[in-house]
Nucleic acid binder design. Structure first.
Lengths: 205, 205
DNA sequence: CGACTACTTGAAAAGAGTCAATTCACGTGG
DNA sequence: CCACGTGAATTGACTCTTTTCAAGTAGTCG
């Protein structure tokens, strides 16, 4: 159950794992300004990490799925908000002796860095269709359900929009268009069947 | 000369610094697929790190200025290209004993991660004007020239466009508009005088 | 069944991209 | 020192995409 998805974070066997915490959908895990330091590993559910802008807009930096570790900060203070997309269980990871673990942590931080760069590419060099396509491929890969051709989306259209730098309406329209083109089927709003993976790939940068 | 800009990377006094390498504008520093592992510190000039897409488009992930360290990779292989924007001198940093340094490296990696997230915010939640404004503020801050009100841009309009996820024409038009609005003055194409920092800030997310 | 929220759809407006034509800046050679 | 050529940058006209604003529909939970 804890096994990481294909390119998810490594296992962190050297970290002492603390107690498990549970959250309901929408619960705050941490907020901007909080004292940083703690790392979390997702046991169940999905976490979103985001920034809030003065005018209320939101940029979701990452979704974290089971097995993945999040909570890195450059300084002593949080610069992001994190909350539960759905019902979430987390394991607390508290670094024991700094030195011996930093090597493990470095690997994890670099994984996060790679993700961030991939995300930047998605947002910077794709039109709306390309971004949604990239998003579906990313989620599918991380759910390890590429073989099953069915993806479930734990997050709302608004979450997807805020992740991709689009509006909710545009995301909705792209889903509709993909359905009309026969690329996907929408079993329900939160459940996508992919009929043509290759066409999704062709849409991404 | 080596002193880092305000929020630039830390000094890395514990890393062994190797010989200095020099590059002319446009020279490749490393390419996608190269063996990773080496880190570099910029002594002179500016480096761009980017990805190339199948159709030839380019997403610049970062510009690195004097004092900054770059070259982190999650795996053993490079996923990016790096080349010299102008005349560049680099110091090679070769980690000696893995364990004792990873703590230093972790800090640097987290700095890169923060930068990547800032960049994502810029690209994901700003219109063209906002992106260019954010870009100018970022460069000014990293050049430490905020007090002088003058910025020089070592990179071309195309570089800026590829960094911000825009076209060269749009970048050019934004510069023109900022000039017409009296926010900046263009001493030359590569030299910007900022007349109203506050107005630049108001344009960013 | 009703109320609330999430999602979808439509029409109009704004923004950015594309294509094409100048203009500008700079280095080279006459 | 000037003329020319080259690549970079700007500008213009037009198209296409996305956003915005406004309804409308579908689910869901009481």
């Amino acid at each position: 159950m804890f096994d990481a998805a294909p390119h998810a974070a490594s296992r962190m066997d050297t970290l002492l794992s603390g107690p498990a915490l549970t959250f309901s959908a929408g619960d705050e895990i941490y907020a901007e300004g909080d004292r940083a330091g703690t790392l979390y590993q997702v046991a169940v559910g999905v976490v979103r990490v985001y920034r809030l802008l003065a005018d209320g807009r939101r940029q979701i930096c990452a979704f974290h799925m089971p097995g993945e570790i999040f909570g890195f900060e450059a300084g002593t203070e949080r610069h992001f908000f994190a909350d539960a997309v759905n019902t979430v269980a987390l394991k607390l990871l508290r670094p024991g002796s700094e030195a011996e673990l930093s090597q493990e942590l470095l690997k994890l931080a670099l994984t996060s860095l790679t993700r961030a760069h991939d995300h930047l590419l998605t947002v910077g060099r794709n039109d709306a269709s390309g971004r949604v396509a990239a998003f579906l491929l990313e989620i599918a890969e991380r759910q390890g359900t590429r073989d099953v051709d069915s993806i479930d989306l734990p997050m709302s259209r608004l979450d997807i929009a805020d992740y991709l730098g689009l509006t909710i309406e545009t995301v909705s329209r792209v889903f509709t268009r993909l359905r009309e083109q026969g690329v996907i089927r929408l079993a329900s709003t939160r459940h996508v069947d992919v009929l043509h993976w290759d066409q999704l790939e062709d849409m991404t940068a």
